[in-house]
Design a binder for these strands. Structure first.
Lengths: 109, 109
DNA sequence: CCCGGTACTTAGCGATACTATGTATTGGTA
DNA sequence: TACCAATACATAGTATCGCTAAGTACCGGG
């Protein structure tokens, strides 16, 4: 991943993960592979796990432990009401930024 | 500015400033007020100046000192070739991220 | 003579993604 | 049996970046 992308992911990666979780409970390893499949090919595993710890501590998700057939038990995260609210705010912030940038790209001085 | 916006600006603010400078040399104070006029109402002055120091040290801009009628001399920044290259990469990175996020927003699981 | 506007600088802080490494479990295979 | 890859999670340390806060410097008007 380029350094630019690393910096640009700050703030957005959390939103991306929250968006992935809407109506789609998932566990860490799963989320990591999902992100990679979606083109974020170099997201570090550790980054995802740390992020999950954060959003859990912020109370944005509910966690459930489930046994796995192929390894240690999974921690399945599902978005709760507060998480949905945070996601809404995320999209608002994103829209704002996105609109300004598109204007800039079109040379909107 | 919300905390989300603060995080989301990381990486993009530099691109925004580079974009503002294309064909439009400007000095720090001017850039700050420009940003505020464009909706980034709470960008801290210190943030802009620190960013300008950074892009100068990275060699993305040329600097020229010009006297001002109303205060200390201005440092006028203009994009050089390397700055243009960086800006191009910025738009690439931005496009990538933007596209993935729009897909996510539309429920593109 | 001070105060507001102009203009720039910088030390310290908080948040976030990355690096690197480690632990634990299961199944396949040499 | 011994080993290894894949699965699954955890975390200490680092770098970067925007923000806070405070300061310096110059000018004109009330």
């Amino acid at each position: 991943m380029g350094k630019q992308m690393t910096e640009m992911l700050k703030g957005t990666l959390e939103g991306i993960v929250l968006a992935l979780l809407t109506g789609n409970p998932a566990y860490g390893y799963e989320i990591t592979t999902l992100l990679r499949a979606k083109g974020f090919s170099d997201i570090a595993e550790g980054t995802v796990y740390a992020l999950l710890v954060r959003i859990e501590q912020k109370g944005l998700v509910n966690v459930e432990k489930r046994p796995s057939e192929k390894g240690p038990p999974r921690k399945v995260y599902s978005l709760n009401e507060q998480g949905n609210k945070e996601l809404d705010e995320f999209w608002n912030t994103w829209s704002f930024l996105s609109e300004r940038l598109e204007q800039l790209r079109k040379g909107g001085k």
